[in-house]
Design a protein around this nucleic acid. Structure first.
Length: 644
RNA sequence: GCCGUUUUAGCUCAGUGGUAGAGCACUUCCUUGGUAAGGAAGAGGUCAUGGGUUCAAAUCCCAUAAAUGGCUCCA
């Protein structure tokens, strides 16, 4: 008999040779039907493999990330089978599952290519093959047999992969007419692949090496129900509708100009209004938290970056130096604010009593990002960080972290990001030599971050080896309104720069000590944050932030005087808006204002002018009826207070 | 930076070798209209840039730039 422990801690006894499927069947028929794979002591395995004794087993279905991933990996094999059927002689490289679906890298051979026009045929073939309900059969093979198989098949990529595999550790999976070198695991059979869609095709290099063979990467996604595919495609459409590049243009927030240069955004008046409001919002919170605003120049002498180490690391791959009439004199556009802030720290001797000291700056920096990497506002060559550097004693790290977490949480709440986790990135304990700083300090900082996150009640994940060489960090991984994940709000410990800039403070015993430096940027950069925010709210910004809160729409030009009176009165209550004074009918004015995503449309005509009221229409909700100005002001103001 | 695709009016896009098009936006006129597009007229283009092929190029070829989908990178 086997003793099996389930995730809830309960125990079950099954006959020897029982499989994950048997466990699922012993729980419920439905679970057995939906089971895709199992985890055995944490490792994902095929559902139909015999279980070891005393294992902890959990059943994976479509609702588990690992279940989906297994499903998509199996789908990649199905696509490969379809490709082999349609493109005889195709050579296969690798085909993993990814976050949304899977891909397979293939070599079609000279003169053949796949384009999106070929997708329907491949999809059709996949579904046709899936209908056979072919089982994914696992088989352990010797290295010699595996090499013989792929030599026969003339697949150089699989042969190369085999070179790095150990004999006795090699498995093949076969479904239908297709056999692949694969570690697995896989779903039981192709039967529950009910919907397939190829998404994209692109060229990649074998093993990412530009000197090697160019392969075709075919991306696809599959689902157990046709409805799921339809929903997925709808989500993609929604993402397109929310694309910040599209909305940025439509709402006149920002633009790019070839003449100005790639990756250098131009902020239009409305975008600037939004951005400045964000800045004010954070500046206020920072001053309350004891930050000291500073301002530093956009360039720095070469020596500054030699000291910081950036010259050596990035000098050749970035914007090249600015020369002056003075021979040998060189300046660099600043790629970051930290070196400047270190120099500010050094302007006076610091006592342990002065710490922490927190310098904040909305600092514009320039980085020569690779041309292929530029993307709307999320990846640009000139951007403004909501930067601050905290210099503190080692024993203050935890407290400072907690305070920064407070600010980040405040920002996320005000902007309606409610779904997030904190990722703690620590040192790789196996490879401590990679990192700068003493063991003692690392241990102190790492436990400070972990404790701070725990005391703030954050949901956290911990990544070993993800820390920068100069210190551990905490990032907020935020899920937006349509389920995409973004990294916002970074807090990072730095042992490197204090060392390089020889920063010190005088301790209580009169000894010189090294302060700990903490970088932090709740937004990251204004550019990227605005991009994420646009996509999160679909261009419908929170009322307190939006460039225009209202627009007054006079029924005809007879009432435009009254319209301007309304605007002036609302402005006295610190509300922002305009009057649509065009010679157009009210229907047109409403349509344009709705398309412009302005939260409140205030219609005024004869009736309103006479009774000194306004007729209020809310964006996306329709007519709210008429009311006195004061009532409107009160309702809007209370909404804004609530949001903060 | 590499591979692919794209670039035509302010915007969204038609136009596959023979005189440059539509809708919206813009200007003017008419219209004074009550909750998602009132009507008419007009103006607007070295078809990204530079070369080439051709009697003839928006259209075919080459280069450059930018955008875009990937790859690589991301202090």
């Amino acid at each position: 008999m086997l003793n099996i422990t389930l995730p809830d801690g309960s125990q079950r006894q099954l006959p020897d040779g029982a499989t994950g499927y048997d466990v699922a069947a012993s729980i419920s028929e439905g679970l057995a039907r939906n089971a895709l794979a199992v985890t055995v002591n944490g490792d994902v395995r095929d559902l139909h493999r015999a279980l070891p004794d005393n294992a902890t087993v959990s059943i994976l279905t479509w609702n588990d990330t690992a279940g989906k991933s297994t499903y998509w990996h199996s789908s990649a094999h199905l696509m490969a089978e379809a490709l082999e059927a349609l493109y005889p002689g195709v050579k296969l490289a690798i085909g993993p599952a990814i976050e949304n679906g899977f891909y397979y890298d293939v070599d079609l051979g000279e003169g053949r290519s796949i384009s999106s026009e070929d997708f329907p045929e491949i999809e059709k073939k996949m579904l046709e093959l899936a209908k056979n309900k072919s089982r994914y059969e696992r088989k352990e093979v010797s290295k010699a047999d595996a090499i013989a198989y792929f030599t026969e098949k003339q697949d150089p990529y699989k042969l190369e992969l085999l070179e790095n595999l150990e004999d006795g550790n090699i498995t093949f999976y076969t479904q239908g007419n297709f056999t692949d070198l694969c570690r697995g695991p896989h779903i039981p059979d192709t039967g529950n692949i009910k919907a397939a869609k190829l998404m994209n095709v692109g060229g990649v290099f074998w093993r990412g090496d530009a000197n090697r063979q160019q392969l075709t990467r075919v991306y696809g996604i599959t689902f157990p129900k046709a409805k799921d595919l339809a929903e997925y495609l709808e989500r993609l459409e929604e993402a397109k509708r929310r694309d910040h590049r599209k909305l940025g243009k439509e709402l006149k927030l920002f633009a790019f100009s070839e003449k100005v240069g790639a990756g250098l955004p131009l902020w239009l008046p409305k975008g600037t209004a939004l951005r400045e409001r964000l800045e004010q919002f954070l500046r206020k919170a920072q001053v309350k938290a004891g930050y000291l605003p500073v301002v530093t120049p956009h360039i720095g002498a070469k020596e500054l970056y030699v000291t910081s180490g950036h010259y050596e690391k990035y000098g050749a791959d970035s914007f090249q130096p600015i020369k002056t009439p003075n021979p040998g004199e060189e300046f660099f556009l600043k790629p970051m604010n930290c070196p400047h802030h270190c120099e500010i720290y050094k302007t006076e001797p610091r006592s342990y009593r002065d710490l922490p000291v927190r310098f904040a700056e909305f600092g514009t920096v320039y980085r020569y990002e690779q041309s292929g990497e530029l993307h709307g506002l999320t990846r640009v060559r000139g951007f403004t960080q909501d930067d601050a550097h905290l210099f503190c004693r080692p024993d203050q790290v935890k407290d400072e972290f907690m305070k920064v977490i407070d600010i980040v949480l405040y920002v996320l709440k005000a902007l309606d990001f409610n779904d997030f986790t904190a990722q703690i990135s620590l040192r790789d304990p196996e490879n401590k030599a990679k990192y700068i700083g003493t063991d003692e300090n690392w241990a102190l900082a790492e436990s400070a971050i972990i404790e701070a996150a725990a005391e703030k009640g954050l949901t956290t994940t911990t990544e070993l080896g993800e820390a920068a060489f100069y210190g551990p960090k905490l990032d907020f991984m935020v899920r937006d309104a349509i389920g995409r994940r973004w990294q916002l709000g970074t807090i990072q410990v730095d042992y490197n720069l204090p060392e390089r800039f020889d920063l010190e403070y005088t301790a209580a015993d009169n000894s010189k000590q090294r302060p700990v430096m903490i970088h932090r940027a709740p937004f990251g950069s204004l550019e990227r944050f605005v991009a994420v925010l646009i996509e999160h709210c679909g261009g419908n910004f929170p009322l307190w932030l939006t460039p225009e809160q209202f627009i007054v729409l006079p029924i005809s030009d007879k009432y435009s005087d009254y319209a301007y009176q309304v605007k002036a009165q609302l402005e006295q209550h610190d509300l922002r808006g305009t009057v649509d004074g065009r010679d157009e009918r009210i229907g047109r004015k409403i349509r344009d204002a709705e398309m412009g995503k302005i939260p409140y449309l205030l219609v005024v005509g004869e009736k309103e002018a006479q009774d000194n009221i306004i007729s209020v229409r809310k964006h996306g909700e329709g007519d709210l009826g008429s009311m006195p100005l004061e009532a409107f002001v009160k309702s809007v103001q209370s909404q804004m207070v609530e949001a903060m």
